[in-house]
């Protein structure tokens, strides 16, 4: 077949146009993922190509107290942060969906935490949580509620709570704006019909808004879980996993072990261990997203 004939073939052209995207995916997604998985089964260290050791890294990590703690931290961090982000984000979206004065201005303000680079906002939080200069401690002392400054990042549970608050602050805009978009697709005539049917505002939310918003909620919350579960920047700037590894997430610990610690294989194994959890989140969205009988 001549080249000109080939160029008129739909399938061949489609393949041709697909190649750049496929190349990008292979180089930047598949290769690193494959390499990471492979490294997890080796005893590679920085400066030393490893050899295949099978499941040795995983067995070691399973018995490692710090690794177990980081798994607990990650699950706790994700569970609390995404729940609060969902509740506050939905509340904000409902507020913004009403006819507020200065609506577009308020929407822009809500997006701010999302626009600021995470590392930068983490620095701001670091300052807010500082043992000597914390504005929160200062305010509470001035109000007479406490008599000495709080060591936000020094106590394990306080540190966990502090990083969760920072993550919530950072993640709310995404949830709120996506849910707001979802709310705006709901026709106002359903609410008019519901008013005539005698529904109270709560009943309208419960029987109209919530069911019609479920598909969007499923997508948004899946992404929110994925982002939170793999969080790295906030923790690394705020606590580096401390105190006593109380805020080490799997992502930060994996980096800690692999790069500063030099144990590439172990770090890679830890990172790979996150995959089943992420897959579970995606499956949740897959089933949550499945078209309901009523959907178009």
């Amino acid at each position: 077949m001549s080249l000109s004939r080939l160029l008129e073939n739909r399938n061949f052209l489609g393949f041709l146009f697909m190649l750049p995207a496929a190349a990008l995916l292979l180089v930047f997604l598949t290769y690193p993922l494959g390499l990471g998985t492979w490294l997890g089964f080796t005893d590679a260290k920085i400066g030393r190509a490893g050899v295949w050791v099978g499941l040795e890294n995983y067995i070691y990590l399973f018995g490692d107290q710090v690794a177990r703690l980081s798994l607990f931290n990650t699950v706790f961090y994700t569970a609390v942060a995404t729940t609060v982000k969902f509740a506050l984000g939905l509340w904000l979206a409902l507020l913004l969906n009403k006819n507020l004065p200065f609506k577009s201005f308020i929407r822009a303000v809500i997006l701010l935490p999302y626009i600021v680079p995470t590392a930068l906002s983490a620095l701001a939080f670091w300052w807010i949580y500082d043992t000597q200069f914390s504005i929160v401690s200062w305010g509470l002392v001035r109000l007479g509620l406490i008599d000495h400054y709080i060591d936000f990042l020094g106590d394990p549970w306080l540190a966990r709570a502090s990083v969760i608050v920072a993550n919530i602050w950072r993640g709310i805009p995404f949830v709120a704006i996506c849910l707001l978009a979802g709310l705006q697709t709901i026709s106002p005539s359903y609410y008019e019909a519901a008013v005539l049917d005698g529904a109270t505002p709560w009943q309208m939310f419960r029987y109209i808004t919530l069911p019609l918003l479920t598909p969007i909620i499923a997508v948004v919350m899946t992404f929110s879980i994925l982002f939170t579960f793999t969080d790295f920047q906030l923790i690394y700037v705020l606590t580096r996993g401390g105190p006593l590894n109380a805020t080490h997430l799997m992502a930060t610990l994996s980096f800690q072990r692999a790069i500063p610690g030099g144990a590439l294989g172990e770090g890679a194994a830890l990172a790979t261990a996150m995959v089943p959890f992420l897959l579970a989140a995606i499956l949740f969205s897959y089933f949550g997203l499945q078209r309901r009988a009523w959907q178009q």
Binding site: Y190, E192, A193, A194, L212
Partner: peptide, 15 residues
Amino acid sequence: DIAMVFQNYALYPHM
């Protein structure tokens, strides 16, 4: 004590 039929019917799609 009124009932209304809307132009686009406004039937609840999920019911």
